[in-house]
Amino acid sequence: AAVRPAPEGLGDAEAAALTIAYQTAWFALHRKARIRPGEHLLVHAAAGGVGTAAVQLGVAAGARVIGVVGSPAKAAVATAAGAHHVLVRDDDLAARVKELTGGAGADVVVDPVGGASFEQSTRCIAFEGRIVVVGFASGDVPPVRANHALVKNYDVLGLHWALYQQRRPDLVDAAHDALTRLVAEGASRPVVADEVPFEDAPAAVQRLAGGTTTGRLVVHVAG
Results as ranks from 00 to 15, higher is better:
residue 82 G to Y: 11
residue 108 V to Y: 06
residue 129 G to I: 02
residue 92 D to F: 02
residue 145 R to W: 00
residue 95 A to T: 04
residue 108 V to W: 05
residue 143 P to A: 12
residue 101 T to I: 08
residue 94 A to H: 02
residue 91 D to L: 05
residue 84 H to E: 14
residue 103 G to K: 12
residue 130 R to L: 03
residue 124 C to S: 11
residue 98 K to I: 07
residue 146 A to K: 01
residue 155 D to E: 12
residue 144 V to E: 00
residue 75 A to V: 12
residue 142 P to I: 04
residue 157 L to V: 06
residue 79 T to D: 09
residue 156 V to C: 10
residue 132 V to R: 10
residue 83 A to E: 10
residue 104 A to Q: 15
residue 144 V to L: 09
residue 100 L to S: 09
residue 123 R to Y: 00
residue 76 A to R: 12
residue 107 D to F: 03
residue 166 Q to C: 05
residue 170 D to I: 03
residue 116 A to S: 13
residue 146 A to I: 15
residue 109 V to E: 11
residue 83 A to T: 07
residue 154 Y to M: 05
residue 158 G to H: 07
residue 104 A to I: 11
residue 91 D to S: 15
residue 166 Q to E: 14
residue 83 A to I: 10
residue 76 A to F: 04
residue 100 L to D: 09
residue 127 F to M: 11
residue 107 D to H: 15
residue 135 G to T: 08
residue 152 K to I: 00
residue 73 A to M: 08
residue 105 G to T: 07
residue 97 V to K: 13
residue 139 G to R: 14
residue 79 T to Y: 01
residue 159 L to A: 13
residue 88 V to W: 12
residue 153 N to Y: 00
residue 104 A to R: 15
residue 171 L to A: 13
residue 153 N to W: 00
residue 128 E to D: 13
residue 138 S to L: 06
residue 138 S to I: 08
residue 104 A to F: 14
residue 98 K to Y: 05
residue 164 Y to M: 06
residue 164 Y to S: 03
residue 123 R to W: 00
residue 130 R to M: 03
residue 170 D to R: 01
residue 119 E to T: 13
residue 128 E to L: 14
residue 160 H to V: 09
residue 137 A to D: 01
